[in-house]
């Protein structure tokens, strides 16, 4: 599990460091998955039932990370969407999606 998290992070980083906007967005998404899984695994894996009261299991997994993750997933989605539209817009206006070419000014 942890190794998968590591691999996701590695791939995400590699994609973020590339020059194409789309790849960067993909990288951020993968990063998000990695973070989610990391957070979830920090809460302890596979102990007890789902955190629903009234089920038969006497114990359940830690609900707090799950609640955090739920927020994280939704926000991740929001930022991805925004980023995507932004890059689309940037491409339309500037005609490139290469980061190096997007730099037009030496000093702001």
């Amino acid at each position: 599990m942890s190794i998968v998290v590591g691999i996701l992070f590695a791939i995400g980083t590699y994609l973020i460091l590339s020059k194409t906007l789309l790849r960067i967005i993909l990288g951020v998404s993968i990063f998000g998955h990695g973070v989610n899984l990391l957070l979830l695994s920090m809460g302890g894996l596979k102990k007890g039932g789902p955190p629903l009261l009234g089920l038969k299991e006497s114990s359940f997994t830690d609900p707090l990370p799950q609640a955090l993750l739920l927020t994280a997933i939704v926000i991740n989605f929001a930022t991805t969407a925004l980023f995507l539209v932004l890059s689309y817009r940037a491409y339309k206006v500037l005609g490139t999606d290469d980061l190096e070419e997007l730099r037009s000014y030496e000093d702001e």
Partner: peptide
């Protein structure tokens, strides 16, 4: 980054 995060995850577990 991958290696470090793996270690973090393992350690956290």
């Amino acid at each position: 980054v991958g290696v470090v995060m793996t270690i973090v995850a393992l350690a956290a577990n």
